Simulated scan of single mutants.
Amino acid sequence: MDLEAVRTFVAVADAGQFQKAAADLSITQQAVSKRVAALERALGMRLFARAPRGAELTIDGQAFLPHARELLRVAERAVASVRPGRRPLRVDVMASRGAQAGLMRGFHRAHPEIDLDVVMLLEFGTAVGAVRSGAIDATFRAVAAPGLPLPEDVASVRVLDEPLQLLTGPAHALAGARSVTVERLVGHRIWMPGIVPGSEWGAYYDDLVDEFGLTIEATGPNFGSDALLDTLAETPALATFMGEPTRLIWPAGHGLRRIPVTDPTPVYPHALLWHRDNPHPALAVLRAHLAAAATAHDAAGTWRPDWVIPPSPVSPPTNSRPDAPGGG
């Protein structure tokens, strides 16, 4: 059903005249007549009867009027549900327990008035495509990995460099170390199931292996973090990398160790990506929040791949308030 025709019908019913309805809608009287006639053909009945004073509703028109008003109210609610500033801000993070989710939790604590819809899209192309189509407003990625070019209509900025730590079981050869150098990790098996070939984090760990001669194994099915922690606790020969801010909980009997990696410290670079024309006002607030919380990038004694975007400040947007109220 043509909603413009329905809107015109309601305008005529309220005005009582085709000419006045045309003036109220800023269209011609001929256009009003054509819209009403089309609606009458679609319904198979007459809605108005000509009268000396203008147009009067027929019995069928009177029956249809409350439903027509409800149709217009439903249409307005539908539009409002996706209007920027009315719908939740949709942001993609790669894992619910990683640094990216931590950034969004911090944002939510600082701005509880902003509705959020946090999603998890693993694949780079899927996430960037969702940003470009408007399915999501922003995504956190380590751009731009080799073979993963960033489209010109997508903007990006580094927001966090996440230091990696070594996670081992209690019987691992390095379990007693207070810190461990990258060189000392050579020859040890670092198990990371779930690395997707061709992903930006896959490219990151490929470069880490090439740079320092490490052994990273992505073999076996990925049963999630709980299964990974169980295996590390039971297998002295295996360790894994995890981000310093990553929140994991394991049984006390596991005795797992989180060990800082030094000389250099590998950091996983997180960037925020968004469409340059995205009008959602809460996106501007998120960018301003990340700008205020940003820390130094590429600090002395750290390592990251050469293809990572260079550090740059997250400039707060000019409209940084709403209209109303990982990797490693």
Results as ranks from 00 to 15, higher is better:
1 M>F: 07
5 A>I: 00
11 A>Y: 01
17 Q>I: 03
34 K>Y: 12
41 R>V: 03
50 R>W: 05
59 I>M: 10
78 A>Y: 15
78 A>N: 10
81 S>R: 12
82 V>Y: 13
82 V>G: 00
85 G>E: 01
91 V>S: 03
104 M>K: 00
106 G>W: 08
110 A>I: 04
112 P>E: 02
114 I>T: 09
116 L>E: 00
118 V>F: 11
118 V>A: 03
121 L>Q: 05
127 A>P: 07
135 A>H: 14
138 A>C: 12
142 A>P: 02
148 L>M: 06
152 E>Q: 06
160 L>E: 12
165 Q>H: 15
168 T>N: 06
173 A>R: 11
182 V>Y: 12
184 R>C: 03
201 W>N: 08
203 A>F: 01
205 Y>T: 09
206 D>H: 12
208 L>A: 00
211 E>N: 09
213 G>N: 13
220 G>P: 14
221 P>A: 14
224 G>A: 06
227 A>T: 10
228 L>V: 09
235 T>K: 01
251 P>N: 12
255 G>E: 00
257 R>G: 07
261 V>K: 06
266 P>F: 01
267 V>A: 06
276 R>Y: 11
277 D>C: 10
290 L>I: 06
293 A>K: 11
295 T>K: 11
306 D>G: 11
306 D>Q: 14
309 I>C: 05
319 N>A: 12
325 P>R: 15
